[in-house]
Simulated scan of single mutants.
Amino acid sequence: MTLTNKQKMIAGELYDAGDPELVADVMAAAKWMDRYNARIGAERDELLGLLREGLGAVGDGVIIRPPFHIDYGYNITVGEGVFLNYGCVILDVCAVTIGAKTQIGPGVQILTADHPRDPAVRAQMLEFGRPIVIGANVWIGGAALLLPGITVGDDAIIGAGSVVTRDVPAGATVVGNPARVR
């Protein structure tokens, strides 16, 4: 059985992001972002309802302050009581899971999207993704950058401006570029 580009994308295999089905999904996410980001002054319940329309799964008590930017939305799972501050970006070409009670500062980028290292393959405009898992009760400082394939353990802290290139153990504090355990 041949997989569609959408199935390949979600599975973390090479896919063509220009596939019409994926372009339509990106456009649907863009229309959702227009609605969500225009509601910056809305009540929490209204924003939570919009989040549940645009994301894969959203727990109770989630707050994501607009503006908020996504690729697709349906690959994002957000646990109960999660908080994302202004200007966060999640490129969700495959699964992004954010555990309960996690707090994420402004301008954080969570990027599952990746590109082939082989220039000949990259020239074919193929992409792939690697999932990101963020545990429960994690604190991620403003402007941190989480690269594809990262797992962050429960109760970890990521310092502001850090570039996370490797997994972060549970309870660890990491800082810097690249982020290292402190």
Rank of each mutant, 00 (worst) to 15 (best):
A95H: 10
L48N: 00
I76D: 04
Q103L: 13
P66I: 08
K101F: 12
K31Q: 15
G61F: 03
A28Q: 15
P106L: 12
I90M: 14
A57G: 07
G99C: 12
Y86W: 09
V78H: 03
W32T: 12
G99P: 00
V58T: 01
E53Y: 09
I70T: 03
L51V: 00
L51Q: 00
N75C: 12
Y86E: 11
Q109W: 03
N85P: 05
E80F: 02
H69T: 09
A57Q: 11
G49H: 00
R65I: 07
R52I: 00
L50C: 08
Y72G: 07
P106K: 02
V96C: 08
G56N: 05
D45N: 12
A30K: 15
G87Q: 08
I90G: 05
G79E: 06
G105Q: 08
V93S: 11
I104H: 08
V96Q: 10
E46K: 13
G105F: 02
I104C: 08
Y36K: 14
Y74I: 02
N85S: 10
F68M: 07
I63E: 10
G105K: 09
C88T: 12
D71R: 03
V62R: 03
G41P: 10
R44Q: 14
E46H: 12
K31A: 15
L55E: 06
L48D: 00
C94N: 01
R35W: 01
Y74F: 13
Y72K: 06
F68S: 04
